[in-house]
Design a protein around this nucleic acid. Structure first.
Lengths: 251, 251
DNA sequence: CGGCCTATCCCCAGTTCTGGGGATTGGCTC
DNA sequence: GAGCCAATCCCCAGAACTGGGGATAGGCCG
C-alpha cells in the first residue's frame, strides 16, 4: 500500500485532483487515496441540508447507503456533531477529539452511536471554509473496530484539503463567489456592542452618540445584510469575520 | 537541508507546534521550518488592521522592518491583495497565482511592486478561516530573484495549517468552556429559530406552540447563559457549538 | 458642481422583547 | 410520595426594537 513516500503520494493526489474534471473523477481519486491511507470511507460535503439545498452544494462519498438514508432523514447535514466541530478549528481532527471542540448534547451521542451501528467507526475530518460560502469538510472514516493510523494524518490533511478545493472548482464555486456586504466602521462598532448584549442606550453612552444614531446604524447594517433581526445580523457578521468571538467576549 | 522525509518533517513541525506555549516558541519553530523549506520569510497573521484591532489579533513574522512599516502605514492588513486572494480559496497558492483568484487593481500591483523593492519576492500563502473569527493566513516568502520550490509546497501547506492552529490555541482564540450551560432540546430549537431571525410568533407557528411558550423558552435559555439579550445568547450558543452557522443559514 | 456616501441627530407609531408573576402535566429519582 | 425538571400555557406593564419619515454637514469622485 504505502510503497510511495508520503509527500510523493500527496503530490500524486494533488495532480489527480487538479486533472479531475467531473465529480466522478474526484470520487475515484478519493476512493483510491483513502484506501491507500487505510480508511474504509470518505465523504466530501458542504454542511447543508441536502433535502432542501440547491444544486450548488457538493456531496461526494462512499458511505453505506443505510447510514446516508438515516443521516438525510434527520437533516444532519447542518447539525451533525462532526460538522459542527469542524466549524471550531482550522485543521483536521479525529472524531475522538470532537468533545474537545464542541459540547455534545444527548442527541449528538445518539447520532455517533447510530453511525457506529451503521458501519462507521472512527474518522478524521478536514475542515474547509471559504468566507462567503457554505462551510464544508472532507472526512475519512474506518469501520467499527478499526483504528485511524495516526502517522498518516498529515497526508489525510493534504488529501482532504486538495479534494475540497478540486470539488469547489469542478462545481463552479469560484464563479459563484458573491461578495459579502461591507459595513462602515461605525456600523461595525454598533454591531459589535449589540452582539455583546448592549441596548441602544448603552451603546450610545459607550460610543458618545445619540440613541437614535445607534438605532440608525444598526438598521442600516441590517439593511445591508437584508436581515430582519439583530440576532441574525450578529450571526452573519460573525460568519463573515467582521466581528469575532474574541471581540465579543473580551472585557 | 532536506535530510528528513517530507512527512517526517511535517510530523516534527506538528510536534513543535503542539508543544509551543508562547508566540515566541512558535516564531522560532516557524523560522526553522521556513528556512528548511527554502523560504526567507514567514508571516502568520489575521487579516485585520493592526492599528485598530483588539488584543486578540495575531501577527507573527520575520519580515523586513521597513516592509512592515510601509504595510501598516497603508493599513493593508485588510486590503492586501494576497490576503484578499486567500479569501477565495481553501488551499495554499503561490503569489504568481493571485491574479487567478482576484482581480488586481492598479493599487494592488503597486503594493506587490513595493513589496519586491523592500525585499519580498514570490511566496506561498496558506489560508486559514474559522467561522466566527477574523480570517487569516500563514505565508512563506523568498527574497527577490529566488524561486519558490514547487515540490515543497505540500509541506508548506501543512506547516502553514499547523502553525495557524497553534497560534489560535496559544492566543486563546477558542477554548471550549466545559462549564457552559446546557439547554434543553426545546430551548435549543427556539434559540436556533431566533438566531435565524424569526419572531416569537413565527417560531410558535413553526414549532406548534404558543407564543408565550416560545418567549419562556428563550427567557430560560438567556437565564441559563446569564445574558440580557437574545443577540448575545445566539452568539454564545454558536460559540459552544450547540447551534451551527450551517443550521442557521439553511433554507 | 452634483451626486453619493458616511456620520450625525430628530420625530412618530406599532411590534417585539424583557421582567415578573401565575398555573398544570408528566417523567424521573430518592 | 415529595421534589425536581422539562414542557406547556396564561397574564401584566414597561423597555427596546422596527419601519418609516425628516434633516445637516463633510468628504470624495467624475
Amino acid at each position: 500500500m504505502l510503497m510511495m513516500s508520503g509527500l510523493g503520494m500527496a503530490r500524486e493526489f494533488f495532480g489527480l485532483a487538479r486533472q479531475a474534471s467531473t465529480n466522478a473523477d474526484l470520487v475515484q481519486a478519493l476512493a483510491c487515496v483513502s484506501s491507500n491511507m487505510g480508511f474504509d470511507y470518505f465523504a466530501l460535503t458542504h454542511h447543508v441540508d441536502f433535502a432542501s439545498a440547491g444544486h450548488a452544494a457538493v456531496r461526494l462519498h462512499n458511505y453505506p447507503d443505510d447510514w446516508v438514508a438515516w443521516f438525510d432523514a434527520r437533516r444532519l447535514g447542518v447539525s451533525d456533531p462532526v460538522h459542527r466541530a469542524s466549524q471550531a478549528t482550522s485543521i483536521g481532527f479525529t472524531w475522538q477529539q470532537v468533545p474537545e471542540l464542541i459540547r455534545l448534547t444527548t442527541n449528538d451521542r445518539h447520532v455517533l452511536q447510530c453511525a457506529r451501528e451503521r458501519g462507521i467507526g472512527d474518522g478524521f475530518t478536514v475542515p474547509a471554509h471559504v468566507p462567503g460560502e457554505a462551510t464544508g469538510s472532507c472526512s475519512f472514516a474506518v469501520a467499527p473496530g478499526r483504528c485511524v493510523l495516526v502517522d498518516i494524518l498529515p497526508l489525510a490533511q493534504l488529501a482532504g484539503a486538495f479534494a475540497f478545493e478540486a470539488a469547489r472548482r469542478i462545481n463552479g464555486m469560484r464563479s459563484l463567489n458573491t461578495h459579502a456586504p461591507t459595513l462602515t466602521e461605525r456600523q461595525r462598532d454598533c454591531v459589535l456592542w449589540m452582539a455583546r448584549g448592549k441596548t441602544d442606550w448603552e451603546i450610545a453612552r459607550i460610543l458618545g452618540l445619540s440613541q437614535e444614531t445607534v438605532t440608525q446604524h444598526l438598521k442600516q447594517a441590517r439593511e445591508r445584510y437584508d436581515v430582519p433581526k439583530r440576532s441574525v445580523l450578529a450571526v452573519r457578521a460573525l460568519f463573515d469575520g467582521l466581528i469575532s468571538f474574541s471581540d465579543i467576549f473580551r472585557r
